Simulated scan of single mutants.
Amino acid sequence: MNHDEVLRARMLLLGSGELSTAERLRAYRVLVHVSPAVYRTKLSRLLVKLAARSGPEARAALLAEAVTVAEGLAERDPLRTDVLGAALRVARDETAR
């Protein structure tokens, strides 16, 4: 992971301005590699939220990524069941459409 990318992502999240969903998504995708315990939950939840507002093709890809990210949460993480369950439920519902 490029140190400059990590620094930019952290500065973006620490800034005082309101971030767009795309900016937050880019930052989380970078930071999940350096702080997975912190950013896997945030990234998975944001992907599910973004999928709800996306077209069918993008929705499927975003939900697949959300499930993959959530599956990477540590077994002992207290949020794992909720985050993974939410991603799987939404992905299942999408498949049933």
Rank of each mutant, 00 (worst) to 15 (best):
M1A: 15
D4T: 15
D4Q: 15
V6T: 09
V6D: 07
R10S: 08
R10M: 08
M11F: 13
L12C: 11
L12V: 10
L14S: 15
G15R: 06
G15N: 01
G15Y: 02
G15F: 01
S16H: 14
G17N: 13
S20M: 02
T21F: 08
A22T: 09
E23R: 10
E23H: 07
A27V: 04
Y28F: 15
R29F: 00
R29Q: 07
V30E: 05
H33G: 05
V34G: 08
P36N: 02
A37M: 08
V38K: 13
V38T: 13
R40C: 09
R40G: 09
T41M: 07
S44V: 01
V48M: 04
K49D: 11
A52V: 00
G55I: 01
G55N: 10
A58C: 01
A64W: 01
E65V: 00
T68P: 10
A70L: 03
A70T: 09
E71K: 13
G72D: 11
R76M: 04
R76F: 07
P78W: 06
R80V: 09
T81G: 13
L84H: 11
G85M: 00
A87D: 07
R89N: 08
R89A: 10
V90S: 07
A91G: 07
R92Y: 10
R92V: 04
D93G: 12
A96I: 09
R97F: 07
